[in-house]
């Protein structure tokens, strides 16, 4: 998805992990993914640079669809579909 599509996508679950460092955001995503159904979209908010690389790789390994990342002021919104 491009940035415009990501901004417009309906988010079913939002995880704010901006207060944590690696591997906090990844573990927050892992905990939250169990709370949504297959096909639903989750966004992970992280200020950790490594997370924007970790989440796509994690999605690939776990069979989730990485949708893309939007860079905000001082943090990232990382989108994925279960």
């Amino acid at each position: 998805m491009n940035t415009e599509e990501l901004i417009a996508v309906q988010v079913d679950k939002s995880v704010d992990a901006r207060g944590t460092s690696c591997p906090g955001p990844l573990l927050a995503a892992k905990k939250a993914i169990g709370q949504i159904d297959k096909g639903q979209v989750m966004e992970v908010l992280s200020a950790d640079e490594g997370t924007r690389r970790d989440i796509p790789k994690w999605c690939n390994k776990k069979g989730f669809e990485y949708l893309g990342t939007v860079e905000e002021s001082g943090f990232f919104k990382i989108f994925l579909r279960k």
Binding site: C22, P23, G24, L26, L27, A29, K30, D54, W58, K61, K62
Partner: peptide, 11 residues
């Protein structure tokens, strides 16, 4: 502990 977190994320 950081490495364990990575392992936990991947079950």
């Amino acid at each position: 502990g950081v490495i364990l977190g990575g392992a936990a994320a991947e079950d």
